[in-house]
Nucleic acid binder design. Structure first.
Lengths: 228, 228
DNA sequence: GGACGGCCTTGATACATATCAAGCTTGCGG
DNA sequence: CCGCAAGCTTGATATGTATCAAGGCCGTCC
């Protein structure tokens, strides 16, 4: 897992590195590190000075904020292959804007901001890839703000389930929840109780069947129509 | 207002154009256009194909989404000098992710995406400026998502008032609301009634004084302490 | 193997904010 | 000058979701 050659192979097809030449890739690898982490391990805190951004190699982490009274809002759930905190590359006083904690044992790849920005100067295609990714995130944020303000908790739960299914699925499909329900609830900005009740209601309406963390959707089209 | 030389002067110090050479600036100006608009005029709709992004020259516009039952959420209120929709430059199927409508008569500068991306290829400093701006927006979105999920309406109103005052102000200060209260309420994701009641409560507590669209804050520090 | 502590569910209740409704003010058009 | 629509405020009521509370299940640790 800590093998540099393996790491190079892992990153070769990642959007952040795909457009680089062999030489560039070799150069940046000197500034790429990997570390293991455990479930529940705090990886960084909101406000910490930020000199690197990340790609998750394995396991899972959550990015979240906490209110004064301890309530938690999960901003993103990160799964292997996903990158996060690229934005800190472009800040004047770079600090992580969220907390990051492991939710499953895994390994995290860190990329030094300064070195990667140097690469961006040389590789417009990489810059464009970064900008495209940031544009996607902005879109996703707007969708989330809309869901939080214009839609109710049922909509958010249904919508979330639909995001878990592969692109363009029809008919019956089974998905596995990517984290414990408490974490999913914190991502959807509802209490665990409300999530539980919403899933029960959807089950009673025979729109879904829930067994532990496995959700069967007998008819994707019908569920979509129930987005309210 | 439609004078190209004036337009060139307007844009020279804008972050999107500041890093360009004279030649580059001249070239992009052929792909920059300006148009007037009226209050309440629809400038584009969510889902429209997008070939340009914008800088507001004068007046004001709102970027917003609408729910199935007609409820409106203002995503951003744009004032002169501010740019918006830069993200569409980097989309595969570029479409505006929000509606845009004038709220005061004004003029809008549009910049053709294709031409600007060509410039980005040549000017890393401009690319970096765009990326920095996108990073700022992502930060702002996270702050907004936090405010919507972890904080109540009173917090959002107080926080909003504090964003209106100049950086680092202390003591007494007077601000003018940048739009009608209905629009502000739609931005804060509360009803006009709730906004009205919240402002009244704050007045009763002598944290603010409201006269029409002018808000006097006798003690900024005291208001900040009341963020809850 | 038993006890403890999370996680999840379900029920009862509380509360923040929306909704509905009415009245006031202001600006504009006839 | 009057009437009317739009914006804003204030009051009464409704409602969605949180909170509080209890119980069941399961995995882990002594």
């Amino acid at each position: 897992m800590n093998d540099p050659a393996q790491l190079a192979r892992d990153l070769r097809h990642h959007y952040l590195f795909a457009a680089l030449s062999e030489g560039q890739r070799a150069r940046i690898l000197a500034h790429v590190h990997i570390r293991g982490f455990n479930a529940a391990e705090l990886l960084f805190s909101q406000g910490d000075p930020a000199h690197a951004f990340f790609v998750l190699q394995s396991g899972a982490v959550k990015l979240y904020r906490v209110s004064a009274d301890g309530q938690e809002k999960v901003m993103r759930l990160i799964r292997p292959g996903q990158s996060f905190a690229e934005s800190v590359m472009f800040m004047d006083d770079p600090r992580y804007p969220v907390h990051c904690t492991g939710i499953e044992n895994g390994a995290l790849i860190s990329i030094e901001c300064r070195a990667f920005v140097e690469l961006l100067k040389e590789s417009f295609d990489t810059s464009r890839a970064v900008m495209a990714k940031m544009a996607q995130r902005i879109q996703a944020h707007w969708d989330e703000i809309e869901a939080l303000t214009l839609q109710n908790s049922r909509y958010r739960v249904v919508h979330y389930l639909l995001t878990l299914i592969p692109e363009g699925s029809r008919g019956a499909i089974t998905v596995t929840l990517p984290a414990r329900k408490i974490v999913i609830a914190a991502q959807l900005a509802v209490t665990p109780e409300t999530l539980s009740r919403t899933l029960r209601t959807l089950s009673d309406e025979e729109l879904i069947e829930v067994h532990e963390d496995v959700v069967r959707i007998p008819d994707v089209g019908r569920l979509q129509k129930h987005l309210h």
